[in-house]
């Protein structure tokens, strides 16, 4: 159903286009702000309906405001994503063919890893098998910096992970391209990269770190929600709101 939009919707969309991604708390504040600015009634618990109205008009443009969880802190985020599979999508207009090939190789490494990371060394080594124009070491390093700046990847001590925005935007692509390898969280059923895995070989379910924290919070003896085996991993703390970095 296509709905009529007001200026409050348009302002919300414009801001999201400029910033790319916001966490839920910011999105609520922005919703309030946009309604106030254009003297529209604002119902605090109707944010998702407000966004649905925008999405109904974005859909014909193959765009969508999509919600997803940060694997870092477990909070919900909203991102404006592009679903068009044409040669004019955001990434193909910003990166050369060989740069995209290396990004795909990085994605391969991350998806096939245990913990959802790829080291800079492994990424540099993977240039050896490039079929398009091979990237030099310095070019690869520069590309990785750009991918972090453009918020596709995150980097910590030489280890690269997918950003929240990248996961939200690329989830359908990753689910299609990596059908056999992709892991899904047993708790929230979203795609999982940084996660804990049940060590029972006949089980092996995955749970996001923040989902682990929430699920096992306050339980004395953590047991796997699928096979009831002892959960042998360290249980992370539930991360408090606002005390974390954005991605």
């Amino acid at each position: 159903m296509s709905r009529l939009l007001g200026d409050s919707h348009r302002r919300f969309l414009q801001t999201l286009m400029a910033v790319g991604i916001t966490d839920e708390q910011e999105a609520r504040a922005l919703y309030q702000h946009c309604c106030d600015t254009h003297k529209m009634p604002c119902t605090p618990d109707k944010l998702d309906e407000f966004i649905e109205a925008i999405n109904s008009r974005l859909q014909p443009m193959f765009m969508q405001i999509r919600k997803g969880m940060s694997e870092e802190n477990g909070h919900q985020y909203y991102a404006l994503v592009n679903m068009a599979e044409t040669d004019i999508t955001r990434m193909t207009s910003d990166y050369a063919d060989n740069e995209l090939e290396l990004f795909r190789k990085t994605l391969d490494l991350i998806v096939s890893s245990e913990n959802g990371t790829a080291s800079s060394t492994d990424i540099l080594n993977s240039t050896d098998t490039m079929t398009s124009k091979k990237l030099k070491k310095s070019e690869t390093e520069h590309l990785l910096t750009r991918l972090v700046q453009d918020k596709w990847l995150c980097e910590r001590r030489g280890e690269y992970t997918l950003s929240t925005r990248c996961i939200i935007e690329m989830e359908p692509y990753i689910r299609t391209m990596y059908q056999d390898q992709v892991k899904v969280c047993h708790i929230c059923h979203n795609i999982a990269f940084q996660c804990q895995i049940c060590e029972n070989p006949s089980c092996g379910i995955k749970i996001h770190n923040p989902c682990v924290a929430r699920y096992f919070k306050g339980r004395v003896e953590p047991r796997c929600p699928a096979c009831d085996d002892f959960w042998p991993h360290e249980i992370p703390e539930v991360r408090g709101l606002r005390s974390q970095s954005k991605r």
Partner: peptide, 16 residues
């Protein structure tokens, strides 16, 4: 931008 800016106050979401 086609939205009326005369009434706009700074947005609570910081732009890069």
């Amino acid at each position: 931008n086609n939205l009326d800016a005369s009434t706009a106050r700074p947005s609570p979401v910081e732009r890069p």
